[in-house]
Computed example of a mutant assay.
Amino acid sequence: MNSVSLGDLAQAQFLRRSSAASEQRLARLTEELSTGRRADLAAASGGDYKMLSGIERSLGILASYKTATDEAALIGTGVQTALATVQGLSEDAGNTFVSAGTLGTGAVVDSAAATARQQLDAAVSALNANIGDRYLFSGAATDQKPLAGSDAILSALRTATAGLTGASDTLTAIRDWFDAPAGGGGFRDLAYGGTDAAGGPFPIGEGEGASFRVTAASPEIRRAIEGLALGALVAEGMLAGDTTGRAQVLRHAGETLLSTGTKLSELRGQVGSVEAAIETAATRNQAEATALEIARSRIVAADPYETASALEAARGQLELIYTMTARLSNMSLLEYLR
């Protein structure tokens, strides 16, 4: 019976090819075990990438929504904090001004108005809050500071009331200055640096956006600034010598601030509704992303037990090839004759 055997060169080439294939398989299995993902996605998806690419696309979109909801939530917190500061200042100063204006004595009025400038500074600073180079109360002009400083506001009000000697005329002129439309030489031209239009909405979901429709020119905020500015003007000596008139201005400032406190609460409630919508969208998006990640994992995830078993088998096969190669390399005529 004739027998067929492989020559030494053929055996060496065969072992070399087997060794290379085993090393590649070992490297692939090692990668799968360390990453938890199958290296051959074509085999994992059955040659159809449509579902996997659809999942990846959806996850990418949800990641962009997460960035938007995170930013929107941060902006909402900043807006709420600023409004809370302005509301607190309005309520504290309002009570003090009304009480002092009702008593009407010069010393009490001067004492009550003494801290109004600091309170105005604090309110303006809160409304000029900026997060990530984005001003919160400038409307669509998020790169513009919403309010000029207290000095500029008080200077414009002194100009608007120059020559007026009565409390009633002074209060009317100041109210007209705060309510003047753009181009009228009032608050919108000399103190407000933003726009009336709200900033573009944050895309927080499919066909869903969230925006905070509050600016430093909103009526509630203008009234708060007006009340505090009136107190600061009284402290600076407005209507000097007219104790009754000064008391009337301070009482009016206090009443304006107290009514504004209630309106600011309503405004904060509106902002809170937007924040709730953002949180709901973020929760829904996270749930959807989790479901998609599970679906993707079922396609691309490598089973750790099966991978470890296959890796051990590949390692044993490679060791066997190395052993056979070593034996073949050590063969000689002397060994053969023995």
Rank of each mutant, 00 (worst) to 15 (best):
S58W: 04
G60V: 04
R17E: 12
A44F: 12
A10E: 12
R25A: 10
I61P: 01
L62N: 00
M51V: 06
R38H: 06
S19F: 11
G47D: 03
S22M: 09
A20H: 10
D40I: 01
A42F: 06
I55W: 00
T30W: 04
T30R: 06
A39T: 15
A39S: 15
S22I: 02
S3A: 12
S64I: 01
D48P: 03
E32A: 00
L15K: 04
M51R: 07
G46A: 05
R17K: 08
R38T: 08
S34Y: 04
T30F: 01
R37E: 14
I55R: 00
L9F: 13
K50F: 08
M51T: 13
S19C: 01
L33D: 08
S3V: 14
S64A: 12
N2Q: 12
R25Q: 13
D48H: 02
L26K: 06
A44P: 08
Y65N: 10
A20L: 15
N2I: 11
T30V: 03
Y65G: 04
F14G: 13
G47E: 07
A20Q: 15
L9R: 14
G60Q: 03
F14R: 09
S3P: 09
L33H: 07
L29I: 06
S19Q: 13
S45H: 05
L9G: 11
S58A: 10
E31L: 11
L52F: 11
G46R: 04
E23W: 02
G36D: 12
M1V: 13
E56T: 10
T35Y: 10
I55Y: 00
S53V: 04
S5N: 15
K66Q: 12
S58C: 01
G60E: 08
E32C: 03
A27C: 05
L6Q: 14
R17I: 02
E56P: 02
L33M: 11
R25S: 14
A43Q: 13
E56Q: 11
D40F: 03
M1N: 13
L29H: 05
L15H: 07
Q24L: 15
Y49W: 06
L62Q: 02
L6I: 09
G47Y: 00
S53L: 10
R28E: 15
Y49L: 08
M1L: 12
K50P: 02
L33P: 03
Q11R: 14
Q13P: 08
S58V: 01
R25Y: 06
A12I: 04
E31W: 00
R38W: 05
D8I: 07
Y49K: 02
Y65M: 05
S3R: 12
A12C: 00
E23R: 08
T30Y: 08
E31G: 10
A44Y: 15
Q13V: 09
L33A: 14
I55S: 00
T35C: 03
L15Y: 12
S3Y: 14
L59C: 08
R25H: 07
A21V: 01
V4P: 09
D48F: 00
S45K: 00
L59Y: 11
L9M: 15
A27V: 07
L15G: 05
